[in-house]
């Protein structure tokens, strides 16, 4: 069992592809993790696919264009159902994250030593940071400016203030750790299974650990982000309703 332990340790380490020879003040040497390079590859694949899919759009759609339009409309409707009309402008961001996460979580299946970039806690941390930024941005806009934004920390009652402030940290942390933990767990389990059994069993189990869990986690991440955002946006609609009643 010693060799599998060592191998796992090796696999779990965030490898540097390149380290700068110079120091940047305050933050030290530039580290370029393998996960970033894999991200670039995933981005390149997505970009090329999108360019090919949206090439030469016409008023009367072909099959390819109809598919793209259907996907975009479906995603838009999905997030609008979650967040209401006010959430429409956040659809492109949330869709981007979902698309990236779905492909990133599945990346481990493609072989060639590619590991899911979401196995690197820094990537999930970055996503969580952006999520909390978007959540607070939505709350800021939903509450109508800085005053309403700070007031929203006293809701539903002033006693909730410490909890509301703690949520600023808890939400991104839970988002980050949930995604990281799930992908890492699936990765470790799959490595162990691959080590123990032959070829067939890992393929079947990979359907669960990589495909199912990977897509579920991508969905959960985006869904929770949109849910938190809708909490911030909701009071906007309440304000409108109240204004209409007055």
């Amino acid at each position: 069992m010693g060799d599998i332990g060592a191998e796992l340790q090796e696999q779990l380490r965030n490898k540097d592809v390149w380290v700068s020879s110079f120091d940047v003040p305050l933050v030290g040497k530039i580290h370029l993790h393998e996960s970033i390079v894999i991200m670039w590859g995933i981005m390149a694949v997505i970009m090329v696919a999108v360019l090919l899919l949206t090439r030469k759009m016409t008023l009367i759609p072909g099959k390819r264009q109809a598919l793209v339009e259907f996907a975009v409309t479906w995603v838009t409707d999905f997030f609008e159902d979650n967040m209401g009309k006010g959430g429409r402008r956040y659809v492109p961001y949330l869709s981007t994250v979902f698309l990236f996460l779905a492909i990133a979580n599945l990346a481990g299946m493609f072989g060639f030593g590619i590991q899911p970039p979401t196995k690197d806690i820094n990537v999930t941390a970055a996503l969580a940071l952006m999520s909390i930024f978007m959540i607070e941005k939505a709350a800021f806009q939903g509450q109508g400016g800085i005053k309403g934004f700070f007031k929203s920390f006293l809701k539903p009652m002033p006693v909730m203030l410490p909890i509301n402030i703690m949520e600023l940290v808890i939400r991104p942390l839970s988002l980050c750790m949930r995604l990281f933990g799930n992908v890492l767990g699936a990765f470790v389990v799959m490595k162990l299974i691959e080590h123990v059994c032959g070829l067939i069993a890992p393929m079947v189990l990979s359907m669960y650990f990589d495909v199912f869990d990977g897509l579920i986690q991508a969905y959960v991440f985006v869904f929770l982000t949109s849910l938190f955002m809708s909490e911030g946006l909701e009071s906007e609609e309440e304000h409108i309703v109240k204004a209409n009643q007055v």
């Binding site: 779990l12 380490r13 965030n14 933050v27 030290g28 530039i30 580290h31 370029l32 993790h33 996960s35 970033i36 991200m39 670039w40 981005m43 981007t96 994250v97 990236f100 690197d120 806690i121 820094n122 990537v123 941390a125 970055a126 996503l127 940071l129 952006m130 890492l184």
Partner: peptide, 17 residues
């Protein structure tokens, strides 16, 4: 090492996204 936050990776990830 696994749980170590690295400023550069976070920054690059944000830029990538």
């Amino acid at each position: 090492d696994m749980l170590e936050f690295d400023f550069w990776t976070v920054l690059f990830s944000v830029i990538n996204i």
